[in-house]
Design a protein around this nucleic acid. Sequence first.
DNA 1: GCATATATGTTAGGTGGCTAACAAGATGTC
DNA 2: GACATCTTGTTAGCCACCTAACATATATGC
Lengths: 126, 126
Amino acid sequence: MMEAALRPHGLGATQWYVLHQLGHVGPTMQRELVRLLRVERATLSIIVGTLVRKGLIEQVPDTVDQRQKLLRLTPAGKSLWADLPDLGFIHDAAFAGFSKADIAITTRVLKAATERLNQHLEGEPT
Amino acid sequence: MMEAALRPHGLGATQWYVLHQLGHVGPTMQRELVRLLRVERATLSIIVGTLVRKGLIEQVPDTVDQRQKLLRLTPAGKSLWADLPDLGFIHDAAFAGFSKADIAITTRVLKAATERLNQHLEGEPT
DNA sequence: GCATATATGTTAGGTGGCTAACAAGATGTC
DNA sequence: GACATCTTGTTAGCCACCTAACATATATGC
């Protein structure tokens, strides 16, 4: 879905999220993005690498903690970001017409299920 | 989650589903599995290839239609299948404790949303 | 100060998903 | 019978996710 909207620009969904963060919120530490996107360090590293190769973002090592890298859009990145379509229509297309109550229940069930499975994983490594 | 349960056996989730089908239902045409797993031909081709390389399943070309391939467990596959743990606990762990009504609503919302997004994809290729 | 531990990022190797393009067999039409 | 078309499977190339192992840099402990 998002894929379809982003393919013309040569981006994947997660790449879009990274640009979204940097475009809307501003320069962000890579480790912060790991938290925001709920993705492994290693996964993000690859995605960031891709965007850097494409010349859309830069990694600037922090001056005080040389391990951490600040991510920010390059001029090319800013320009592309400005061209990207609005993706709000996706949410609308998917969920318009359901009652708020139903959506709330759905959200609650899925969140709880996810949490439980995570607890199982931590609690039961035989 | 499944991953955790299957890793000791060196299997991924979709590989497990294939073994499950062949173990529970019996030999199955590859094109039938595409339908059952709701996956692209190409994707299944890779997964089947992996299982064949591992010696767990075989591809037998149909005698009348040489394009189609019947998949079936090898002796090694049967033996592994017998050793695999029950995965029902996953569903229980995730969804026990919710009312049937809430689960029904969740299912309905997600199914409908999925369907709508698919329609968008077919109807709107600008 | 030095050794150990912790945090951050990268690399290597797996799984699984997709599209596009191709090969080969089966079918249909004329 | 010959050609066009549909079906099935494979291959190549991409995205995204994961764990494990490693390199560095910072922080802690003694």
